[in-house]
Design a binder for these strands. Structure first.
Length: 501
RNA sequence: GUGGCUAUAGUUCAAUGGUAGAACACCGGGUUGUGGUCCCGGAUACGAGGGUUCAAUUCCCUCUAGCCACCCCA
């Protein structure tokens, strides 16, 4: 009797010892489970494919870098550096940090390896984890993954446009509708001028009293940020405020116009968004973000921001076109056309402000600042987890790839020994074959074969070994035949051909 | 970092001031050489700590975590 009991317990894996500590993930960290990984595979495949088409070379940098790298590049006053870094002192007393964004490491690498001696521009792409110690919420993790592209050594506006094109193609080919938000924040010179104008505007009689508390702080700390506040009264004021495009110097204005022209030529849907201001210190001229387009048009028009663009900006009439009408390019074959999910816009907040799927811009002064030669550059990053979220929201079914055709089941020690050899032969011959050699019973093996959705199961047992045969079972009909063991391959081949034809 | 809501099996959800149920999933059996359907059985949960109470999963507090809104961002 006690033996019986023990056997039952061993067979049940869910019994766990009392008192053993169970560990849970750290806050804001996520496991990517096998089921979700099919989306990751799809996205990474698309990212790599696109990057290669546009001549970007893959690269990688360490997760851990000197803390000062980020202080000097991202900015000592930026939120990312001041309050969001996983930073610590290592055993040598060195101040280090888990990378909070990709660009500084890539710039460091460019300078350190003397890539300015290579033919310019140097186009690099990168996929990897980033860490920010933020308060997590949906679409916001402490560790997330970005697909990142950088173009070093190219001052031309076509570089900016190409990055935007790639970002747009990426989402479009994953059947995620997006809209590009774009602005220019000028070079150091014209931005200084603009900031002065803006501050002056807000100092006019009665305006400061109308601003929310945050905005009053912004007025001193970072006036550009006054433009993207969500408070109704602040939006009202922002609508009347001078726009940076009017303050751009000739060079910056020409650059920006060229970028927009390229986007027009390519029929890309963008919003000239005078309120787009990005948080990192190093941006110059072009800045852009990729916003998802909510499948629910009512919800979209709910956005106070969106409305304000169309009222305030000349170039901002609804330019969005359905992705299927514009620029050609292959949609991912893994994606099947699916119904749009009813709940697709659930994640957008009450105000309809969509979380951005990606963003980037030009940073012409950064490389010099980081000890390199003066080198113009631009780049962008997009969040893989957020892309996964969108694909799931859209209920786009994913075609299963590489479904196995054959399952090999075995019964008894002798059969198992023969089966592991047969399995290798079949695999090497190119059959998509699966097994469960750790299972003893035919029942459980057939169960697995059924779950795998194979067309045929080969059954090899004691009896078959004696006779020099093997059973082949059609999983759909349940009909099985005894065939000559030596003809196993040809018999499977014959049946699979019939199946496909 | 600030504010609001939440926390029950692996998952999605119930009920209850007297220690808990379902569905799906899982394991076993019906069928020790035959899966998908069916039938039977089984294991598994009140996030952590403290308080009120004869008694707390239930009420209160703290912590932790999740969601949402800010800040900010991918």
């Amino acid at each position: 009797m006690p033996r019986m009991k023990k056997k039952i317990e061993e067979g049940n894996r869910q019994i766990r010892p009392k008192g053993a500590k169970r560990f849970v993930r750290l806050r804001g960290m996520k496991d990517v489970l096998p089921e979700e990984y099919q989306y990751w595979n799809l996205i990474i495949k698309k990212a790599v494919e696109l990057a290669k088409v546009y001549s970007f070379k893959r690269t990688d940098t360490p997760v851990l870098e000197n803390l000062e790298l980020y202080e000097r590049s991202t900015g000592k006053t930026s939120d990312i550096v001041t309050k969001e870094m996983f930073a610590f002192i290592d055993k040598n007393g060195e101040r280090v940090a888990l990378r909070p964004e990709a660009t500084p490491g890539l710039v460091r690498s460019y300078v350190e390896h003397g890539m300015f001696n290579l033919p310019q521009p140097v186009k690099l792409f990168w996929i990897g984890p980033l860490f920010r110690h933020e308060k997590p919420q949906s679409g916001r993790l402490r560790q997330h993954t970005q697909f990142d592209l950088e173009i070093f050594g190219d001052p031309s506006p076509i570089a900016d446009a190409q990055l935007i094109l790639i970002a747009y193609n990426f989402f479009r080919e994953l059947q995620i509708e997006t809209q590009i938000q774009i602005n220019s924040i000028g070079c150091g010179e014209c931005r200084k001028e603009y900031t002065a104008k803006l501050t002056e505007y807000y100092k006019e009689r009665g305006k400061r009293a109308k601003l929310c508390g945050d905005c009053n702080k912004r007025l001193v700390k970072n006036p550009l940020r006054l433009l993207d506040c969500k408070e109704e009264k602040c939006i009202e004021l922002a609508l009347e405020a001078p726009q940076i495009v009017d303050s751009l110097c000739d060079n910056c204005r020409n650059h920006f116009i060229k970028v927009l022209e390229y986007l027009d030529d390519l029929d890309m849907p963008y919003n000239l968004n005078p309120y787009l201001v990005r948080g990192l210190d190093y941006y110059t001229r072009t800045v852009f973000e990729i916003w998802p387009v909510s499948p629910d048009p009512l919800r979209q028009s709910f956005s106070p921001l969106r409305q304000s663009f169309s009222e305030a900006s000349e170039a901002s009439e609804a330019r969005f076109q359905p992705a299927s009408l514009s620029l050609g390019g292959p949609a991912s074959p893994e994606l099947q056309r699916g119904e749009r999910g009813e709940t697709a816009s659930a994640s957008a907040g009450a105000g309809g402000r969509q979380i951005s799927l990606g963003g980037g811009g030009r940073y012409d002064n950064l490389i010099e600042k980081m000890g390199g030669r003066p080198t113009p550059a631009c780049g962008f990053g997009l969040g893989i987890e957020r892309a996964v979220m969108k694909i799931k929201e859209n209920n786009i079914p994913i075609k299963r790839d590489g479904e196995p055709d054959v399952f090999l089941a075995q019964l008894g020690d002798q059969a198992r020994r023969k089966a592991i050899i047969l399995f290798e032969e079949l695999r090497r011959a190119g059959f998509r074959v699966r097994e469960a050699f750790t299972k003893d019973s035919l029942k459980s093996q057939l169960e697995i074969a059924n779950q795998l959705n194979v067309k045929y199961t080969l059954i090899l047992g004691q009896k078959e070994i004696m006779d020099g045969t093997i059973l082949i079972r059609d999983m759909e009909s349940g009909i099985q035949e005894i065939i000559d063991y030596k003809k196993t391959k040809s018999e499977i081949e014959k049946r699979l051909e019939v199946h496909c034809g």
